[in-house]
């Protein structure tokens, strides 16, 4: 075999050996277990923090509200749809260690007209038949920003919730 070919083979050999060595060192251990990715990343994604508790958590304490709501038109709404994520609230309250609840864990009570308008403001895109609602009705739509705005008695602006109980509208 000519000399230059021998040298070339040696150089290639060193190159390949280096490549294999580097790959062994640099490749994460779980890479390639399930495919061309690091399968540990699934667990890392699954380790994210929870925020929404789920309706079962709410009704374990607030069962009266659940009962009241289940008879009304808002039966399908989950608590956290209006009150916001409540897992921290539920965990703290569930531990029975530190009543009263700190302010940061008190959940929001949306009472403004714009909060109701999110669902009930008149919109051509919103004329829907909700077959699963209790009386097969359309979702009620009003001009939420003007509907019965002024109180006749007090001559003052009033909120939707001063007439409608959001838990049983």
């Amino acid at each position: 075999m000519p000399k230059h070919i021998k040298r070339l083979i040696l150089v290639f050999g060193i190159f390949i050996a280096l490549f294999i060595l580097l790959q062994q060192i640099l490749r994460p251990s779980s890479f390639g277990e399930l495919g061309h990715y690091r399968s540990d990343a699934i667990e890392e994604n699954a380790a994210n923090e929870l925020h929404y508790a789920g309706v079962a958590n709410c009704s374990s304490c607030h069962d009266t509200v659940r009962l009241q709501k289940s008879a009304g038109l808002h039966a399908m709404l989950t608590c956290e749809a209006c009150h916001g994520p409540g897992l921290k609230h539920a965990r703290f309250a569930g531990s029975f260690t530190g009543f009263p609840l700190p302010d940061s864990l008190v959940l929001q009570k949306p009472t403004e007209r714009k909060d109701c308008a999110l669902c009930h403001q008149i919109n051509a895109a919103r004329v829907k038949i909700l077959f699963d609602t209790i009386d097969n009705s359309l979702i009620r739509q009003v001009n939420a920003l003007e509907h019965n705005l002024m109180s006749k008695k007090t001559k003052k602006e009033r909120k939707c919730v001063s007439c409608h109980n959001p838990h049983q509208p």
Binding site: N45, A46, A47, N48, E49, L50, H51, Y52, G54, V55, M76, L77, T78, E80, A81, P85, C119
Partner: peptide
């Protein structure tokens, strides 16, 4: 992270 704990994804949980 919710699925692994037996909960629904947040957007499904919340849809009124």
């Amino acid at each position: 992270h919710r699925l692994k704990k037996g909960l629904q994804p947040a957007c499904f949980e919340i849809c009124p």
